[in-house]
Design a protein around this nucleic acid. Structure first.
Length: 379
DNA sequence: TCTGGGGTCCTAGGACCC
DNA sequence: TCTGGGGTCCTAGGACCC
């Protein structure tokens, strides 16, 4: 049996910071933007379990977090530090398998062939213990014959747990769980399912597929397959090439000032181009996304006749698209801008000097660090 | 108390091609 | 003369994940 052993780091950013600041262990600690006395825009990135006791959690608006726990220690994020730890965890996992897949900065899985469930449990304990002793980081581990189920198992074990779901137990493990625990099912899908009387994965297994299909399309088939214990994720899959790169920026206060907006486009294009240059990528489409003060969004995009590299073309296209959006808005509701985003898409490898003029075809871009996740992706 | 930044995938209409 | 069917690309919007 191919097993997926899924490692999900506990309060990862906070845990990385506590390595450098052991005096904060045991206290409510938050990694997030400077709360500015509760006036900051933004959200909590990571909260220690002591902070969670106050109701803090990641993605909570800073203002609300600050109100709930003004005494929490706030630490500004240091993504380079977290990326280093993330790589260290992956390197450690490669000791146990050559099939290691990172799913995000704080999640990764290894795939192994084992027939004995006890052996899987032993492996999970070993992995968790070595991450704890060698990297001083806590994690939860889930193991199952499928990636989605292994991830859900690791969630059940949080924090610090180990949960093994053998093949013959997959259906009974899933049945009592809320559909909301399925990766890919968010608030909207949960509401659709609730309107059909489907609350648990067991309910999902019993509902008529045609009824689910009418509301959810092909996603219904994936949900049903999961509920029946045979999800569509096919075990180990190598990482895929990156598809887009973007940078975005939320203004401290909403604005419709041209200079500020175009200044932002300039820096966002530069940042996006720099990220692509680092990985030797060129782009064949440009999209500008605007979030208005009322939180609605609009995007304008444009496909290019040839792949470009560097910030100049990106800024030129982005500026043109942004002015298009602003012009339409000025003759209408004239809302202020909250957020601007510059995205480059249809990425192809071969950034930097093109070697030869006859090099018409670009090879696939390098594998990106994190493949997509959730039951939704099949490929 | 308003809601970040960086991503992926799905849907759907229209253009265009065979 | 009044009308196909399949496939791909482009564009916009939306759900979801960490």
């Amino acid at each position: 049996v191919e097993w997926c052993v899924y490692v999900d780091m506990d309060a990862f950013y906070v845990a990385c910071e506590l390595k450098d600041r052991p005096e904060l262990i045991g206290q409510p600690v938050v990694v997030g933007p400077d709360p500015k006395g509760g006036a900051a825009r933004g959200v909590v990135l990571s909260a220690s379990y002591e902070a969670r006791a106050f109701g803090l959690r990641s993605a909570l608006p800073v203002a609300r977090a600050y109100a709930l726990c003004p005494t929490a220690r706030w630490i500004p994020p240091d993504f380079e530090k977290y990326e280093k730890s993330s790589v260290a965890v992956r390197d450690l996992l490669r000791r146990y398998s050559d099939r290691v897949v990172p799913y995000s900065i704080d999640e990764a899985a290894l795939f192994v062939d084992l027939s004995d469930t006890n052996a899987v449990h032993g492996l999970a304990e070993q992995v968790q213990a070595s991450i704890r002793t060698e990297l001083a980081l806590p994690c939860s581990v889930g193991a199952a014959p499928f990636r989605t189920v292994a991830k859900m198992a690791s969630d059940r074990g949080k924090p610090g747990g180990i949960r093994i779901v053998p093949p013959e137990r997959v259906v009974e493990f899933l049945a009592p769980l809320s559909v909301r625990t399925i990766p890919g099912v968010g608030p909207k899908t949960e509401a659709v399912l609730a309107s059909l009387g489907v609350h648990t994965i067991g309910d999902l297994r019993r509902e008529r597929l045609s009824k689910l299909h009418a509301r959810l399309g092909v996603f219904a088939e994936e949900l049903r397959a999961l509920a029946e214990g045979v999800p569509h994720d096919r075990g180990f899959e190598a990482t895929t090439a990156p598809k887009s790169r973007s940078s975005d920026m939320t203004f401290d206060e909403d604005t419709r000032d041209s200079d500020r907006l175009l200044g932002a486009i300039h820096s966002l294009a530069a940042a996006t181009a720099a990220a692509m240059a680092k990985d030797g990528l060129r782009y064949r489409s440009v999209t500008v996304r605007v979030r208005w003060e009322d939180f609605t969004q609009i995007q304008h995009g444009h496909a290019l006749p040839v792949a470009l590299e560097g910030p100049e073309g990106l800024e030129r296209e982005a500026r043109r698209l942004a002015e298009e959006v602003f012009r339409e808005e000025r003759s209408g509701r004239n809302r202020r801008v909250r957020l601007l985003s510059v995205q480059a898409g249809q990425l192809v490898a071969g950034g930097g000097r093109q070697e030869r003029l006859d090099q018409f075809e670009s090879p696939a871009p390098e594998a990106r660090p994190y493949p997509s996740r959730g039951v939704r992706d099949r490929r």
